[in-house]
Design a protein around this nucleic acid. Sequence first.
DNA 1: ACCTGAACACCGTTCAAGT
DNA 2: ACCTGAACACCGTTCAAGT
Lengths: 232, 232
Amino acid sequence: MAPTVQAGAPRRVALSRDRVLRAGVALADEEGIDALSMRRLAQRLGVVPMALYRHVANKEELLDGMVDVVIGEIDPPLEGADWRTAVRERILSARRALLRHPWARPVIESRTGASPVVLDHMNSLIGMFRAGGFSAVLTHHVMHALGSRMWGFTQEVFPSAPPPEDPEQRAAMFQQVAARWPHILEIAGAGAHDQGSVVGQGCDDQFEFEFTLDLMLDGFERLRRQDWTPRR
Amino acid sequence: MAPTVQAGAPRRVALSRDRVLRAGVALADEEGIDALSMRRLAQRLGVVPMALYRHVANKEELLDGMVDVVIGEIDPPLEGADWRTAVRERILSARRALLRHPWARPVIESRTGASPVVLDHMNSLIGMFRAGGFSAVLTHHVMHALGSRMWGFTQEVFPSAPPPEDPEQRAAMFQQVAARWPHILEIAGAGAHDQGSVVGQGCDDQFEFEFTLDLMLDGFERLRRQDWTPRR
DNA sequence: ACCTGAACACCGTTCAAGT
DNA sequence: ACCTGAACACCGTTCAAGT
């Protein structure tokens, strides 16, 4: 018997870093990031908890690796498009990847230090601006302005709790909002697709994202055209 | 002896919700949000852990209350200023409050559902746009565009890890970045106050924040002036 | 040399027993 | 009626003992 993986003994697929990371992504996808513990992940892989530590140094490194898996799903850059189309498509592709893995947003935000995969994405975006005629300084600020939007997400701030079921309670809540926060009520339904909805309801996230993205791209283009430099 | 607080017996100041929240803020300020556990907070107050549950239902509610304390530090709105100055100052004041309590950013981001204090802040901002001549629909989108920036923070994405001490290691890292991520290197120093710094170093956060805030306010003003409505 | 069970030092929260 | 100690069901990770 060669000392390789025992064929014929259908025990377990050998553990590998890749298999650990993919199982982590699957677990987080299915049960949320709070359900992802080293112990539960090990159980899912039919392995003792400490076995995971052969492939990742600790939980932080597990999360880093899982983020890389998600970022790996972003489409490659468009070839031969103008800077604006290229940037826009790249960011919207990142958004699609992140929407498939909702747990990834808070995890990306909490990372300190960038992995090679993260740096690849940033380098690629920066290259698009530079090729489009943006100066190094302007590109620097423009990348800061994008911030986490380069990953296709932003922090929404409208309360997301669904309104109470009971019509009487809902009426009472309505009264209270009308009295203390009239302006919120006033704009609540505005911009919603289905009319008569309550705060934060029926609001089209994709529309809001593209609205802001385009607002920023417009701003960038304007600064580029006027050869913006920081006033000193 | 009246059954009130025993005078003369210098035991402990009576626990109250307010005292619990303030102690939570102080603990998070001093030792970070990870150090804030119900058990440690109780210990700091010289109280058994379960005593806290008289004043907050659970840890989530504790965090909600702590966020309210921080938001309570934001200055009241400017009277009689134009919309742009009023909005700008309010947001920069929120930023100052948040900078005093760095743990508050991730906590605010993780809240679901808005407290009355949060709604007050939003209502006040919305009122400023409306008074400045913004339509309800445009104000709706503009508030989404601000997102978490209304609290004076945004997610920075540049790697923040300090470069290695050892000059030889630093040179090697430099080589690696130059080879694989040339564009990142190219814009790294640009926009930094002190020259010759490395990625993410010497970068003026306050400048970046105001750069983007002004870019967005410019965009808002432009849409307002052209009576923007969503194309259907 | 490799692997892993038990243990450590924590969590948030429940609950029953005590005053 | 009020308060609280012990307990429950978890964590991530260390480490020594086993094969």
